[in-house]
Design a protein around this nucleic acid. Structure first.
Ligand SMILES: [Zn+2]
Ligand SMILES: [Zn+2]
Ligand SMILES: [Zn+2]
Ligand SMILES: [Zn+2]
Lengths: 132, 132
DNA sequence: TAACAAACTGTTATATTATAACAATTATAA
DNA sequence: TTATAATTGTTATAATATAACAGTTTGTTA
């Protein structure tokens, strides 16, 4: 079992906001949301984000420069992340699929590179947007 | 056979620089490199980049905000891109593997989303950096 | 070929995302 | 306890990207 990580004040504030959010949050939108709690500078946000990413509590959606809470129970170290992104409504979901991560972590590069980690972003139309 | 795309002057200038580069280039480093050719503003670079991405001549490495020339003969439309990134020397290679892209393009989301496109970034140590 | 539309260009200004650098404080561990 | 690492606060600045406007070139078709 993964030990419950003790977070610092700022880290906890930032994590709470990201976990409550319905979708990916941008760093500066987090900042505006926590100014009442005494966090005033981007650095404070980015430092918390860095730590939260490092311990796998959140992930960065690289194509959107935005951050989401981890919804997979087994990715404390974020070495195998995959997301689905709707190109219309921009909803983002973490894709948690054992076969997929096994396939990718075992994938052998032709150039002799040993992969330690991957990040995968799928794009398409979500169920809702497909219908419309 | 894919028709040879006719590029505009700015698009060709930007593509040439990216193709000649040994690794991923950042937008502003491209800008600094073409100022002698009369391109003075970021917009001109970003517009060319957008077009080149759209037609599959280049790809964006999202985790680095940088751009590389496509080295795969069959990705005019950039719907299935994969890269290997060395975490030490930062060398980037396009991963071109039929099995891999087939597997991912066929991958079925549990939430009923139909994927049209994906981007995959692998991280690790390249052959050279592994030895050292 | 005239005339319209689409794509591209140039330019100025500004928005957004992220890091540097410095000083102080708090938690952890030897 | 002392020192070492992690965290905080703060100001300033760097790096990345887009908005908005006006003009030009290119391609299409009437
Ligand atoms: Zn996760
Ligand atoms: Zn949608
Ligand atoms: Zn390619
Ligand atoms: Zn390397």
């Amino acid at each position: 079992m993964a030990q419950t990580q003790i977070l610092s004040r700022n880290q906890q504030i930032v994590l709470d906001i990201i976990e409550k959010a319905k979708g990916p949050l941008k760093a500066y939108s987090i900042l505006f949301n926590v100014q009442k709690k005494g966090i005033n500078a981007p650095q404070q946000i980015y430092r918390a984000l860095d730590k939260l990413i490092k311990i796998g509590k959140i992930h960065k959606i690289e194509s959107k420069n935005a951050f989401v809470a981890c919804t997979s129970s087994n990715c404390e170290i974020s070495k195998a992340t995959a997301f689905s992104i709707c190109e219309k409504c921009e909803v983002v979901d973490e894709v948690s699929d054992a076969k997929l991560s096994k396939f990718l972590l075992k994938f052998n590069d032709k150039k002799g590179m040993k992969f330690k980690r991957f990040n995968l972003e799928f794009f398409g139309l979500c169920k809702r947007c497909k219908i419309k």
